[in-house]
Structure formats: C-alpha cells, structure tokens
Design a protein around this nucleic acid. Structure first.
Ligand code: MN
Ligand code: MN
Ligand code: ZN
Ligand code: ZN
Lengths: 158, 158
DNA sequence: CTTGCTATTGCAAGAGGTTGCGCTAGGCTT
DNA sequence: AAGCCTAGCGCAACCTCTTGCAATAGCAAG
C-alpha cells in the first residue's frame, strides 16, 4: 500500500491558487539576468494548473504531456530557480523523495502513517509549538515544511 | 507490514557500545529461520566497530575493506534484517540519504543547519515536547529519529 | 556425511536525482 | 536586422537505493 489519501483539510478556493502570483514571471526572471525559455514556459503552465502537492516525477510527466521532449535535468533545474523566486517550495516525503508545494502561502509540515500510508498535515498551531520548542532549546529555527515525519496515526497505533 | 523487535539488552559504556548486544546474533538469526552468512558476518563485524551514526554508503565502503566483493544490495538487505532485530535503526539525512544508528539505546532526532552544514541532536526533553504536541493534536505517534529537520542554527540565522 | 529445502546472494535493470560539458539560443546592444 | 555574451539545454555518466530472478549455499534432518 503506497501512500496517497489526504484525509485532511486542503486550503484554497478557486482552481488555480493565488491567481496573480505567476504574472510577470518572465519579466521577473529577465530582471535577474535569467531567461524565459520554452521549457520554463511549459513547466510554469503545468504548475499554474496544480494546487497543493506534486512530486517532481509527476511534474516531469505533466510536462511531457505538453512537450514530449522534456528532460528531467531541465525540470529539476527550473524548479530550483522557481524555488528561489518563492513560487514553489520543496519538501521530502517519508522516503526522501521530493515533493513540491505550489505557491506555498501557508507552509505546513506533514505526517506519514507507516501503517496505513495516509499523509496528514500538521496544523499551524501544532507546528508553531514544535518550532518554538526547538528554538527555545538550541536556538535553532527549523523549516517544518521540509520533511515528512513518520509514525502511526491514531487509528493505527497499537 | 513487518514489525518485529527483538531483545535489546540496554546501555553499557566502553568504546564499542553495548558490547554484548551482538552476542549470539548468529543463533538468533537461525532461531528465526534465517541464515548466518559470510556477508552478514562481515557487516556485523563492521557495525561492531562503529558507534553513533553511519551512512549506508559508508558501511558499504567499510565492508569492502574487509571483503572487496561486497555488493550493495546485500548490505541494504542485511541492514533491513538487523533493523528488525533492533540492532540498528535507520533515519534519513536532510537530503534523504540513509543513516544508521548502531545499537540505538536512546533514539533522538536530528537538526541540520542549511547554512553551516552542522548536525545537532535534539535533546530528549525537547524531543518529548514535539512528540507530545503531535500526539495531542492528531493522536499521531511519531518516530522523531526517522528524519532530520532542516533549518538554521543559532549562529547562522540572520 | 549426504540430502533437500529455501533463504540469500550477485547481477542486471530501473527509479529518482545530480552534475559536468559542449552546443544552442535568449535577449540586450548596436 | 545582426552580433555577442552567456544562461540554459540535452546528454551522458554517476550516485543512492530497490527489485526480480536464477543460481548458490546455509543448515537441519536423516
Ligand atoms: Mn525510512
Ligand atoms: Mn531538501
Ligand atoms: Zn494509519
Ligand atoms: Zn549553522
């Protein structure tokens, strides 16, 4: 049984989140000395149609639907660029694979149940408690959205 | 899934942690219908000489020093077996790579500073706060030792 | 010691990612 | 409209880890 299922709230109304966030992306790239290429256009089109979480592999597949010549390394490199612009944010699933949050308005951590495979989102208040605990301990400021913690959900613990 | 745990003696000082923990491993394997092979002997010898954390890649390298014919897939599979016997416990570094705790007497979480690259161990009390927060929230029991959280250490935050 | 069952091994192939490199092509300048 | 500079592209190779499969070899029984 491999993952999927998200029995948790999932923000956002409208189909494409924060509509205007992608506007002017071409100009913003150029303003930074970067370029607007067909490959980047393809990925951005795909991302505009996404919401919530997507894995890098899924993104490559979606790009290939629009352009069969899509190359993995280009997608990964473009995702890095978009992340620097704050348009996506990557995290790692329980097995270390990459997952992307598109337009991360509200970053959140994830929990993965090793028994049933469900993935849950950590509520903001709880996330804040965790962040505060670590900051109080070592003065460390963590990025809770970067990792998925594993364990057992309420229904699956012994 | 496969969840077994076997005896796990407990503490012990000395350089090579919990000296006796590995004793009788051959018999314990056989008692479970498993086999004691030269490849497993090599890995166990390597692990006996380790303490703290080791990556899977490092273990493969160390095994090869003793037996140049060592194969990665065999090492990974043997590590899985040893984990079921409670002799090692795996976690994932900030980049998803596997790391092993040898004789995990006291499990602990890790923090990775994205700026300076240092890795810190989360103190037990702080770990307990995190675990408690998530249990109180969703009833989820997490395994804090499975992931390395990323962020910035006290000296590196802006 | 021999036999026989089957756990384990080594290998090849594959998935997900990263990286170095030479060639292509954005896009600013003239 | 051309040219130039160099960011970005595709490719090949490599890294870490996983999996299917056929051949091997533990080990317990006779
Ligand atoms: Mn894991
Ligand atoms: Mn990461
Ligand atoms: Zn569950
Ligand atoms: Zn630091």
């Amino acid at each position: 049984m491999t993952d999927q299922l998200a029995p948790q709230p999932e923000q956002d109304p409208s189909s494409n989140a924060a509509a205007g966030a992608w506007d002017g992306i071409a100009e913003r790239l150029r303003a930074g000395g970067l370029r607007w290429t067909p490959q980047r256009r393809t990925l951005v089109e795909v991302l505009r149609a996404c919401k919530g979480h997507v894995t890098a592999t899924e993104l490559i597949g979606l790009c290939r639907e629009r352009d069969a010549t899509t190359t993995p390394s280009t997608v990964y490199r473009t995702l890095d660029v978009l992340e620097e612009f704050g348009l996506v944010k990557h995290g790692h699933g329980h097995d270390g694979r990459e997952e992307y949050h598109v337009l991360p308005e509200q970053i959140h951590g994830h929990l993965y149940c090793e028994a049933c495979g469900a993935v849950w989102e950590i509520r903001p208040e709880t996330g804040a408690v965790i962040v505060a605990a670590l900051e109080a301990d070592l003065g460390f400021v963590i990025d809770l959205s970067h990792v998925t913690m594993a364990g057992r959900c309420e229904g699956c613990r012994d």
